[in-house]
Design a protein around this nucleic acid. Structure first.
Lengths: 108, 108
DNA sequence: TGGTTGATTAACCTACAGGTTGAATATGGC
DNA sequence: GCCATATTCAACCTGTAGGTTAATCAACCA
């Protein structure tokens, strides 16, 4: 799977996005990360592996703890990708098509 | 599935992102969209359904054609979401943590 | 050395994603 | 009315995602 697809797939899960939000406040161990979620520690561990493979987090090794930290570089790639479509949601440009469409709409 | 997850999942496929790129150049019919891909027309039809459910495209009805057009609003939501992490890949801010980390590193 | 805590691995289950082929559903042309 | 074209629907297959429980690995503590 290509890199961007892997990143998007990693982000396509609310639990994983919540983990990233948690890590935005600073490093955390697996137990700390898992605490607010109603799923097993093992399931969280799997989510972390997905995030790690996507390059979104990296993990240290401190005694028996594995502190996780956010790695935002892939998010920059997402931002770059989506920026290529920015003109489609910013209405400031006027195309002929837009003009004609407005003509067709009687003042609603 | 929540909206943002659905959008990310839709984007987590290179074929679907290529379809969006195609539609950025203007409307297209299903056959026109499917033409460059080595998969069946039905598979493309499924991809279009995924994109439509995510709100990324909308479809008209013109005789027996179903012209697809890009609908970028969900991409704006993606941009908004990822913007919340912008500070993590832009090095311009200096947090205390950054400062301490720099102190710990002898000039490498 | 043996128990406790933190985290991963393994085996398993269910659901769904993405592809296929074949049939069905519009719509326009003759 | 009939045929061709455009598209979707239905049934099926295979792989993988996300969850579970049980077992294992690693590091500290007493």
């Amino acid at each position: 799977m290509d890199r961007l697809s892997e990143v998007f797939a990693a982000l396509a899960d609310p639990t994983r996005r919540a983990i990233l939000a948690r890590l935005a406040d600073g490093e955390a161990t697996v137990n700390q990360i898992a605490e607010p979620f109603p799923i097993s520690l093992q399931a969280v561990s799997k989510h972390l592996k997905v995030l790690e493979r996507a390059g979104l987090i990296s993990r240290g090794r401190e005694a028996q703890w594995r502190p996780c930290r956010l790695d935002a570089e892939p998010l920059r790639e997402v931002a770059d990708w989506v920026a290529g479509y920015q003109r489609f949601w910013e209405q400031r440009y006027d195309t002929l098509g837009e003009y004609l469409r407005q003509l067709q709409q009687p003042e609603t």
